[in-house]
Amino acid sequence: MSNYNYINMKKERRKNLIQLAAWTWSWVATLAIASFGPKFIWDDHTTLTVLAVAVNFANGILMIIANRSFFNNLDELARKIHVESLALTLGLAVVVGLSYSLLDATNLIPFDAEISNLVMFIGVAYIFVLTVNTRRYS
């Protein structure tokens, strides 16, 4: 019985997931180095700071490429679930992000609107929406 290389497909999906995880973790690590390095490691040496930011940026691009490969090899139901989740998360990020920025601009909140808060919100929102969508199709 031909099974459309099911085993290979599973292996490929697993390989893509591991690659994505590796690039994501290395991106987080290079981001941490670029953020804290100037103050704690190389004493604000401009060349090293530029190098750290460039390495982090290049790593981020490779992470995006790995994410694309992972996405393109997903099972068709899984891809639909991820697309719906991404669409909702993108909408939430724009609406919440701009409202948050507006709160800061109009001084309705006593602190600055930090981009890191929005990134954390996007992460939590994506996990939540993905969980709800996965349950919907199970």
């Binding site: 019985m1 459309y4 290389n5 099911y6 497909m9 099972d75 068709e76 139901l77 899984a78």
Partner: peptide
């Protein structure tokens, strides 16, 4: 045989 997940067949 189809090359999808069991969850897809279930859905």
């Amino acid at each position: 045989f189809i090359g999808v997940s069991r969850q897809t067949i279930n859905a």
